[in-house]
């Protein structure tokens, strides 16, 4: 389990958020806070909208109702420059890596640096090497093209790309999906290492419970368009609630109906 985090002003805050795609409602009156320095893991079944939550955090998707605040700023109210500012502070590691196929590893890692800073090529190369080192990739990979990387390497390069700009928050979208057990362990270790060394706040979306258990300070479980359970790893792991227990230790039952009343919010500062 990750280090315990003191309650503080939220870095990211969802207040009464609703989001639907056509007739398919993903969130209804959803509330969630992410505290500075913590690793919050969002768990839930496939296709329930965990990634949607991350995308709303950096304005890639807009809420239908409610407010998403990042460092106190309402993301929905931001113009292009405001979003740029938010995305300078909040990095996103995509599920498949989303490396740019036409660029080598160096240019992928340097992309945000060229976009946000006036660093020259030499400085960008040095930063890229340092980032590769942080994600345990050899320096000779700098000129490799994404097509020549394995799944695990692509995820690590994506991780290196996200930390190059020294963000305050890193959002991980299913970081261990499609990886073998060795790479799953490695990515989990890396998330912990980055949080410790870079002191970033992390939000991890996953349905991989061992990884969630390893990296999380708190866990939020998405169920019936909201987060009815938010607590520490131990609280969720030992929950007596059927819905939570079924998900953590097996398969979540698909239920219909309105409003889940699974459990209350875990005590702040837990």
């Amino acid at each position: 389990m990750g280090d315990t985090v003191q309650a503080s002003v939220p870095v990211i805050e969802f207040v009464g958020v609703s989001k639907a795609f056509g007739e398919n409602s993903v969130y209804e009156n959803m509330n969630l806070t992410v505290r500075p320095g913590e690793t919050l893991t969002i768990i839930g079944g496939s296709g329930q909208g965990k990634s949607v939550c991350l995308k709303m955090m950096i304005g890639l998707l807009r809420v239908d109702a409610g407010v998403v605040r990042v460092a106190g700023e309402d993301v929905a109210g931001l113009d292009g420059e405001g979003l740029r500012r938010v995305r300078r502070r909040v990095a996103y590691v995509f599920q498949g890596g989303a490396l740019f196929d036409s660029m080598n590893v160096l240019d992928n890692i340097g992309y945000a640096l060229r976009e946000h800073t006036a660093m020259d090529d030499i400085a960008i190369r040095e930063r890229a090497l340092a980032c590769l080192d942080l994600v345990a990739m050899p320096s000779d990979m700098l000129d490799a093209m994404p097509a020549n990387l394995s799944g695990g390497q692509r995820k690590r390069v994506a991780l290196a790309r996200s930390i190059a700009i020294e963000p305050e928050v890193i959002l991980y979208d299913e970081p261990t999906t499609g990886l073998d057990p060795r790479n799953i362990t490695r990515i989990g270790d890396m998330i912990k290492k980055l949080q410790k060394e870079l002191r970033v706040t992390s939000v991890v979306v996953t349905h991989d419970m061992p990884t969630a258990r390893k990296v999380s300070d708190r866990v939020a479980m998405l169920y019936q368009r909201s987060f009815p359970f938010i607590g520490t790893v131990e609280q969720i792991w030992h929950s007596e609630l059927a819905e939570v227990r079924d998900f953590v230790h097996g398969t979540l039952r698909r239920t219909s109906g309105t409003g889940a009343t699974i459990v209350t919010e875990a005590p702040h500062g837990a």
């Binding site: 950096i58 890639l60 995305r87 995509f94 989303a98 740019f100 992309y111 976009e115 946000h116 700009i165």
Partner: peptide, 13 residues
């Protein structure tokens, strides 16, 4: 492959 989203997420238009 979410590369367009990645362009936006990295702060570019």
């Amino acid at each position: 492959t979410e590369q367009i989203d990645a362009v936006a997420a990295l702060g570019a238009d």
